[in-house]
Computed example of a mutant assay.
Amino acid sequence: MIPGGQSIAGLAREHHVSRGAICTAVADLVPVHTTDHQDSSAPELPVTLDMPGKVADFLRMAELDPAEWAALDQGVTVRRGQGYTLRVSATSSVHCQLLARCQPLDGTPNAPAIPAQRKALREYANRVNTLGE
Rank of each mutant, 00 (worst) to 15 (best):
R122M: 11
G83H: 07
C23A: 12
I2S: 00
V47E: 10
G75M: 12
V88D: 01
V17R: 13
P3D: 03
L59S: 04
E44S: 14
G107P: 09
L11R: 01
C23F: 03
E133N: 10
P52L: 11
G81V: 07
P115E: 09
G53A: 10
D106L: 15
A100T: 12
T91I: 08
G20I: 08
M1V: 08
T85F: 06
D39E: 12
L29Y: 05
T34W: 05
A125I: 00
T24M: 13
Q6N: 01
G107F: 09
A113G: 05
V78I: 15
A27H: 12
E14Q: 08
V88G: 00
L105N: 08
N110Y: 09
S93C: 12
I8G: 01
M61L: 14
R79G: 01
D50F: 04
L64E: 11
R101P: 01
P66A: 13
V128S: 03
A12Y: 07
D65C: 06
K119W: 10
T48K: 08
G20W: 11
E14A: 06
K54A: 15
H37L: 08
A113K: 09
A25W: 13
V76K: 11
E63L: 15
N110V: 06
H37R: 11
G4N: 05
G10Y: 02
G53Y: 04
L29W: 08
M61H: 09
D65V: 09
E133P: 03
S41P: 05
T91A: 12
L105C: 12
N110C: 07
L64R: 10
L99M: 12
A9W: 00
K119Y: 02
A71K: 12
A12H: 04
